[in-house]
């Protein structure tokens, strides 16, 4: 087994006011249908991925997000 490489992906706490961020994330979904929520999440993923830009970092994030096997 080789240790997973995370490139420049930060998996340590990095968000100030975590409870505030979490509330904002949920507020954005407030009142949306399941379908609209799903679409919002997809747009958010694309916007954030573009902001990160670096392919290795995005790939590391994808790996970190995959369910444990």
């Amino acid at each position: 087994m080789t240790a997973p490489t995370h490139g420049t992906l930060t998996l340590e706490p990095n968000i100030k006011d975590p409870d505030g961020f979490y509330a904002e994330l949920l507020a954005a979904h407030e009142g949306l249908s399941r379908e609209d929520s799903e679409a919002l999440n997809a747009r958010l993923v694309l916007i954030l991925a573009n902001h990160v830009g670096d392919r290795d970092t995005i790939r590391a994030a994808l790996e970190a997000a995959l369910p444990e096997r």
């Binding site: 799903e38 679409a39 747009r43 993923v45 694309l46």
Partner: peptide, 20 residues
């Protein structure tokens, strides 16, 4: 399909999504 539609929605307003 969800991601495809998200790309198209974003492409209308944001340049970054157009190459996708």
């Amino acid at each position: 399909r969800v991601f495809r539609d998200a790309v198209l929605d974003l492409a209308e307003h944001h340049a970054f999504a157009r190459p996708l």
